[in-house]
Simulated scan of single mutants.
Amino acid sequence: MDISHRQFNKNIRLKDKAGNPVADQEIRLVQTNHSFLFGCGAFDFIPYVMKGEEEYKDLTDKWLDVFNFGTLPFYWGNFEPKEGEPQTDVLMKTAGFLKEKNVTIKGHPLCWHTVCADWLMKYDNGTILKKQLERIDREVTGFKGVIDMWDVINEVVIMPIFDKYDNAITRICKEKGRVALIKEVFEKAHECNPEATLLLNDFNTSINYEILIDGCLNAGVPISAIGIQSHQHQGYWGKEKLEEVLERFSFFGLPIHFTENTLISGDIMPAHIVDLNDWQVDEWPSTPEGEERQAKEIEEMYRTLFSHPLVEAITTWDFRDGAWLNAPSGFVRKDNSLKPSYLMLRDLIKKEWHTDITVKTDSEGRIRVQGFKGEYSITANGQKTFADLTDNEDQTIVI
């Protein structure tokens, strides 16, 4: 698979602080972060940051050893269970901790019909929409500079016809229509943070999602990236389906994020289950053969997605087994021990897709280097500096 688009190949000229070339010196370049977003649900950081629970220190340390991109929960019904009392402090402290660790953070989601705030139901549709837009303003403005990426609205293909229970967001989506509601919430989010990365996110990868995206773009909705969920509790999609989905959604020319990926290491969920949430089990064990299968499937999936030029991010949904649906869906087991999938992915990111090179400058302080795009520490003659190396343009660095 061609991954040359993930690398830079460029001339760099090094100068000292006086402007003189750093001539005939050995230079070490060590990648400290990827431009590509290797992500995972970061919900486990909340109990660690807020309560210092010891079991979560080991868990979060292992998380940070692999990932540079985390998703935090902003489900309205949990974030603001009582109107006017949002859990802003909890999410701000957690996001601040992750940001200090050089982790890019995404908030998920700003608008969704599931886990919605029950107290919205007492209002008429006009007021519900007003409060939804106010909620977006509060979160996007309030977290600006800490969280600058959002799943703006979630699972809209099914939103107006969702009938498992009544909720405020389905009501307004049914009244306004999908595209009109998407346009309102995206425009508000963009107004509050014009530099933010704003995603439309859905599990439905059928032509219905393509039609929805097309309608949104024709209506001028400022979508930054297409979010594709890939919860595979009922079996791995396989390389052929992955490539088929990528081909169809590449039509729009927008960046693609695989926002919620799940591959399990136990028995596969029965195929007749339509809504994954309907599969409720007391025990869903991970097995040795399942763990080997999971590692192989995740490796193929990551290699396939990493090789596609429009894919910018992959987020695994559960870091530890048992998080959602009690599934063996994590990179670590319930006792925090590492699964083969964790070791495999860490090797991909930290070894195979990682750059650590030593080169010697010429008499003008120049070097020609190739490596994976990202952030680097650059050391010469005991001096160190840091630089972003993300393109093929010639670059001058002062050290």
Rank of each mutant, 00 (worst) to 15 (best):
85 E>C: 11
191 E>I: 03
210 E>R: 08
19 G>H: 08
75 Y>V: 06
268 I>L: 14
358 T>A: 07
78 N>V: 00
32 T>L: 00
75 Y>H: 14
130 K>M: 06
81 P>R: 06
310 L>H: 13
8 F>P: 00
158 I>Y: 01
295 A>T: 01
215 G>F: 07
350 K>G: 08
175 E>A: 04
324 W>A: 09
330 G>I: 01
160 P>C: 03
203 F>E: 07
158 I>E: 10
112 W>I: 07
184 E>I: 07
54 E>I: 10
135 R>Q: 06
135 R>G: 08
67 F>M: 04
387 A>K: 00
242 L>R: 05
192 C>V: 04
314 I>S: 03
393 E>C: 06
137 D>E: 15
335 D>N: 13
158 I>G: 08
139 E>L: 13
194 P>Y: 07
315 T>S: 11
315 T>L: 10
194 P>N: 02
275 D>G: 01
2 D>F: 00
181 L>F: 05
40 C>E: 13
80 E>M: 07
337 S>K: 14
318 D>K: 04
128 I>M: 09
389 L>F: 08
274 V>A: 13
382 G>Y: 04
194 P>R: 01
2 D>Y: 00
84 G>M: 04
240 E>D: 15
68 N>P: 09
138 R>I: 07
321 D>Y: 05
301 M>S: 14
85 E>K: 15
54 E>L: 10
34 H>E: 00
24 D>C: 02
158 I>Q: 13
39 G>R: 02
116 C>V: 15
273 I>L: 08
38 F>D: 05
140 V>G: 07
258 F>Q: 05
328 P>F: 11
195 E>G: 11
35 S>T: 14
376 Y>D: 00
105 I>V: 14
224 S>Q: 08
275 D>V: 08
38 F>T: 12
281 V>N: 11
387 A>D: 00
175 E>N: 02
130 K>L: 11
374 G>F: 00
145 G>E: 09
327 A>E: 11
299 E>W: 03
373 K>L: 01
367 I>R: 02
139 E>W: 08
138 R>C: 10
301 M>P: 03
383 Q>W: 04
50 M>C: 11
382 G>R: 02
28 R>W: 00
111 C>V: 15
167 N>C: 14
240 E>W: 05
203 F>L: 13
371 G>H: 00
212 L>H: 07
338 L>D: 13
88 T>D: 14
148 D>S: 12
225 A>F: 03
198 L>N: 06
252 F>Q: 07
154 N>T: 14
368 R>H: 15
197 T>K: 10
128 I>A: 07
63 W>Q: 12
333 R>G: 02
33 N>E: 03
348 L>V: 11
39 G>I: 03
148 D>A: 10
135 R>H: 14
303 R>F: 04
185 V>G: 01
263 L>D: 13
69 F>R: 12
177 G>F: 10
55 E>S: 13
260 E>Y: 05
224 S>E: 04
98 L>E: 08
95 A>C: 04
195 E>Y: 12
74 F>K: 02
3 I>M: 15
110 L>C: 01
